[in-house]
Design a binder for these strands. Structure first.
Length: 278
DNA sequence: AATACAGCCTGGACGC
DNA sequence: TGCGTCCAGGCTGTAT
């Protein structure tokens, strides 16, 4: 599932493949829903002739800075991937949007489950300004993070998943961060001591940094599996709780539990993350 | 303000 | 083997 490390890996791969500087000759939208709320013709007309200038990330959004003061915002959601091919390969039914580039390569937005979106806009801030600070933004200090947690009173796991609170975390790295910080996923955010809050931010960043080094987490195989640059991510072996329900905790040997928090599967160790709800 | 839940999708895992 | 059923996930919109 693309979360911050997977999105960053996708960006890094596009950068090293030399996407910046390339011009879009034409865009074909195979699935109208993938460019909503624009309609396919509108989208194609808008991006035709634009040149990729830069690629950045904010939370889980990819921001392609384009010529003409436009941006293309991409959200991969569950199964979105960008594929850059040197030739016009055979058609794939899951290539939702296909960009023909001036250098004869093709950039494909491949998305099995079709949850992902591409948006071309002059004002990406309309969307990005709704996000909280990026989890890896050094401007987010432990002290600020502590204040943020104390100003809300929600279950910590649900809060970390809220992109308007902090941007970039998804289900996997939330569970991993809470585990490493020893915090129960149902703890209310305003009951965390400042020591715990600081530990949590550090744990989250450490989990993300490891995942980034491993090029993200790929789980199963096949169509729904995360890949970038034609390669799987190697982070799965670094996961300590996610997907390990009914297995032993690697730290204390207790059995990892799975519960649901806000309709999301949530994995934790009942001993290492004691329930101290107030 | 927080929570719940449907809806968007479809491959893959599972049970029979 | 082949069918049916359920699940996974991020995010938005609506209702409570």
């Amino acid at each position: 599932m693309p979360e911050l490390p997977e999105v960053q890996t996708a960006i890094d791969d596009l950068l090293s493949a030399g996407l910046p500087g390339r011009r879009i000759l034409e865009a074909r939208v195979n699935r109208p829903g993938s460019v909503k709320p624009l309609d396919p013709d509108q989208f194609s007309r808008m991006v035709r002739g634009l040149v990729f200038r830069g690629i950045r990330r904010r939370g889980k959004y990819i921001i392609f800075t384009m010529s003409g003061d436009l941006s293309i915002l991409a959200h991969l959601r569950m199964t979105g991937q960008f594929k850059l091919s040197s030739t016009a390969d055979g058609t794939d039914p899951h290539d939702r949007v296909i960009f023909s580039l001036e250098d004869r390569r093709t950039l494909r937005f491949h998305d099995t489950r079709a949850f992902g979106r591409l948006l071309c806009t002059p004002s990406p801030g309309d969307i990005l300004d709704r996000l909280g600070p990026d989890a890896l933004d050094p401007a987010l200090t432990p002290v600020q993070f502590t204040h943020m947690l104390h100003s809300r009173r929600r279950q910590i796991k649900a809060l970390l998943l809220d992109q308007g609170f902090i941007a970039g975390l998804g289900n996997i790295y939330c569970d991993e961060g809470l585990y490493r910080a020893g915090i129960h996923p149902l703890r209310r955010s305003d009951t965390l001591g400042s020591g715990e809050a600081i530990l949590l931010l550090h744990a989250i960043r450490s989990v993300l940094a490891t995942a980034l080094r491993n090029r993200g987490t790929s789980l199963g195989t096949g169509e729904t599996n995360y890949m970038s640059g034609g390669k799987r991510g190697e982070n799965r072996s670094s996961l300590q709780v996610y997907g390990r329900e009914n297995q032993q905790c690697l730290r204390c040997g207790s059995i990892i539990k799975k519960i649901y928090v806000g309709q999301r599967g949530t994995h934790y160790c009942p001993v290492c993350q004691p329930d101290q709800r107030k």
